[in-house]
């Protein structure tokens, strides 16, 4: 609070010269600036120095020639991308998968973290935590292999089960309408346990006294979750949501590529697989960079918009 007041006071003072401002900043916060040095250096050297590479989106980049020698093509790669007959379909498919995963796969770890937080036997909690985070370490190749095992039309356990119960035989792996549910389901299985870690860390900050006090006040289980647990992770949830928005156009490559086949391709093609087909297998770094640039610009707009909305709702939340 004091610090905030100080800042306000600064603003009301008469205009100072640049040197005076710098001097004052240094005197007050010099150790903070010292702490910033390694991080800032890192960003300059490893993140910003290579950024000249973005210009290859406007060139026809040939690694052998180098960036300077490669020829300019202006916005050719962008026009080729946007005017591709597949563009709208790709956009639609990508947004569908992102939307579903934000609506379903994103809340799953929050839900699970709350449930874990309610477990009273510490050992059991630890055991469950350790189990559910294992799938994060298995590659998509293995996950897709297991999916085939369970959902194959030729003897998959789940297909047989569904047939026994509902009397219909569904080819989950080939029917286009099942593609998105399968992708989301795999995502939940692989990512939920890992995703709980960050929320459990946030919950570690809640003291048991708070719960005990609530119990004394006669608060039931759900009121305790609502009034103590949820507020404790709200800030983390909001920041995670904002950062996730930056990746709306990135659905990942391996999983979708491995789940695609000739019957479901119409709903399976997304930007990431398309860029792989056209950009990487065709050796065009420029083209993939152009598509990447487009995705990044959309991402940063979405991040800042979400942040703006989050701030409207709660002044203390958000990126800044």
């Amino acid at each position: 609070m004091k610090a905030l007041l100080l800042q306000k006071a600064n603003k009301q003072l008469p205009r100072k010269t640049f040197v005076e401002i710098v001097k004052q900043m240094w005197l007050r916060d010099k150790w903070l600036y010292v702490l910033l040095i390694p991080g800032v250096l890192y960003f300059l050297v490893f993140r910003y120095a290579p950024m000249y590479g973005i210009i290859i989106a406007f060139k026809n980049y040939v690694p052998y020639l180098g960036i300077t020698e490669s020829s300019w093509v202006g916005l050719d790669h962008f026009t080729a991308f946007f005017s591709s007959p597949d563009f709208l379909r790709l956009l639609g498919n990508t947004l569908w998968i992102s939307f579903l995963s934000i609506a379903i796969a994103f809340p799953a770890p929050i839900f699970l973290a709350i449930l874990l937080n309610e477990v009273r036997f510490a050992l059991y909690k630890k055991f469950v935590q350790t189990c559910i985070y294992i799938p994060h370490f298995l590659s998509w190749t293995i996950v897709v292999g297991l999916t085939h095992l369970l959902f194959s039309i030729n003897g998959g356990v789940i297909v047989e089960m569904v047939e026994t119960i509902f009397g219909i035989r569904i080819n989950f792996l080939a029917e286009p309408e099942w593609f998105r549910p399968m992708i989301i389901l795999q995502g939940i299985w692989k990512g939920t346990g890992w995703g709980t870690i960050i929320f459990l860390a946030a919950l570690a900050n809640v003291s048991s006294e708070q719960y005990e006090a609530a119990i004394v006040d006669g608060a039931g289980r759900f009121r305790r979750i609502w009034h103590i647990t949820l507020p404790a992770i709200r800030g983390t949830v909001v920041i995670m949501l904002i950062l996730t928005m930056g990746n709306v156009l990135s659905t990942g490559f391996d999983q979708i590529f491995l789940m695609t086949n000739s019957l479901n391709r119409s709903v399976a093609d997304v930007f990431d697989t398309y860029v792989y087909n056209v950009g990487i297998t065709r050796g065009s770094y420029s083209y993939s960079t152009a598509v990447g640039l487009f995705k990044s610009i959309v991402g940063i707009i979405l991040i800042l918009t979400t942040d703006f909305i989050a701030k409207k709702v709660d002044k203390e939340s958000g990126l800044f």
Binding site: L44, Y48, A49, Y52, I55, L304, F308, G318, L319
Partner: peptide
């Protein structure tokens, strides 16, 4: 608050140009 001000844009573009020079 959560958007790029003029100052930020200026600094970032200066940085970028610097990097292009270094990069080349």
């Amino acid at each position: 608050m959560g958007s790029f001000g003029k100052r930020e844009l200026l600094v970032i573009s200066v940085l970028l140009m610097l990097m292009i020079v270094i990069g080349c």
